[in-house]
Write a protein that binds this DNA or RNA. Structure first.
Lengths: 140, 140
DNA sequence: TTATTTGATTAGACGGGTTCTAAAACTATA
DNA sequence: TATAGTTTTAGAACCCGTCTAATCAAATAA
């Protein structure tokens, strides 16, 4: 369960020779506390509540270095790009009505046993399951 | 194994009251024969080799009605939108080096047993597996 | 055969989301 | 302070997909 946290950010800031600015701190803190999967626009909104002049470029640059450092994951679902502070091996459930995305931890999913080698000489290193259905709220 | 084919296209052209034009025929033929998952741009390139003045609008309109009719599926992978002429229930393998996407038929994947109900009251109706690794060509 | 109607195609404008750029503002160090 | 290096900003640029208005093509009617 590797979730984005201040320590790992500090470490990577050091090793990359970067500086921790208030804007970057705000972005990281928002992502840390987010229990959905924010879009770049969500992040824009959150950081601008604290620092009203924050530009698009700052938000995208920060999200990009977090992604490159492996501290957040980019999720492509429903034609939208979202950022996931949970970088552990997990899966996603998408509600077909409200489009919400929820994390599904590996062990709660069921039995999954994927072959390491597939027809055609494909070598499988990793996999991820996308589940679709109705969330609790939309089942009425 | 439901793959896009001329018959099903003719049928849906009839039932929707549409006309089969040379451009549309070219797009369908390209998709039929494509054994990767073309992007809209790939389709553009292919149809323009035959009909050099074909516009973006024609390509996108055609892809959209094929999708709405359920004759092709839209796949979002690696931040790109791709079109898949295989509409049967199947999975995808993406090569981490060349980014190629390959279809994986349901029964060749391994053992998958997903719970119908997940913690938090989620109701699972369907799922799909995205595999990552190295394709045969990139394993050198 | 010639009109009329209807639908399809085209070029280019438009729009949302992301990246790029040049200038200004920081921060750390000398 | 002066200097150098990094970050931020505003806005331009860009990419992908959609929309629009005019033209074109095919089918039907006269």
């Amino acid at each position: 369960m590797a979730r984005l946290n201040q320590q790992s950010v500090e470490m990577m800031v050091q090793s990359y020779g970067l500086k921790m600015t208030p804007q970057r701190r705000a972005i990281v803190e928002y992502l840390e506390s987010a229990h959905h999967h924010p879009t770049a626009e969500d992040v824009m909104g959150a950081v601008n509540r604290l620092f009203p002049m924050t530009s698009r470029a700052t938000v995208y640059n920060t999200l990009n270095w977090l992604r490159e450092a492996g501290l957040v994951a980019e999720v492509h679902e429903g034609g939208q790009v979202r950022f996931d502070p949970n970088t552990s091996h997990h899966h996603h459930f998408i509600c077909r009505r409200c489009n919400q995305v929820r994390d599904i931890e590996e062990n709660t999913l069921g039995t999954i046993q994927v072959h390491r080698h597939l027809p055609g000489g494909l070598l499988v290193e990793d996999f991820e399951v996308t589940l679709r259905g109705l969330c609790d709220l939309c089942q009425k």
